[in-house]
Amino acid sequence: MTAEEMYQEFILDLYRNPSNKGALENPQIKARDVNHSCGDIIEIHANVNGSSIKDIKFSGKGCAISQASTELLVESVKNKHLEEIKNITKEQVLEMLGIPISAFRLKCALLGLKVLKLGVYNYLGEKLEDDNLS
């Protein structure tokens, strides 16, 4: 994999011009986590309609990979049932990204998923186990 293959135009575009960045006032779902080794930060806010996601926004700072994958993830879960979100796998996120990710950068690519699941599990009053992250 070369850097050019990794940082394709669409990844850079998601990184520089995300459409889901922002915050919600008093969101029902709110979660935040950091990749402490690199300083990536992701916070996700969402509101729920019945048991599906109604509005969702994310904020944060980080590398192109973490920000682009969160943007894609957030876009993909709009109107999605919370139970479905609980079952999103890391493979699905990597597939959405569609670029080769080295083992070292996996944490960046999956930070958004971790935060989203954290928020959903908390909202449902359930505990997010390590196993639910894969």
Binding site: A3, M6, Y7, R16, C38, G39, D40, G62, C63, A64, I65, S102, R105, C108
Partner: peptide, 11 residues
């Protein structure tokens, strides 16, 4: 510029 240090490291 707007290149995150992590991405810079990869390149």
């Amino acid at each position: 510029a707007d290149i995150h240090p992590h991405d810079l490291s990869t390149v």
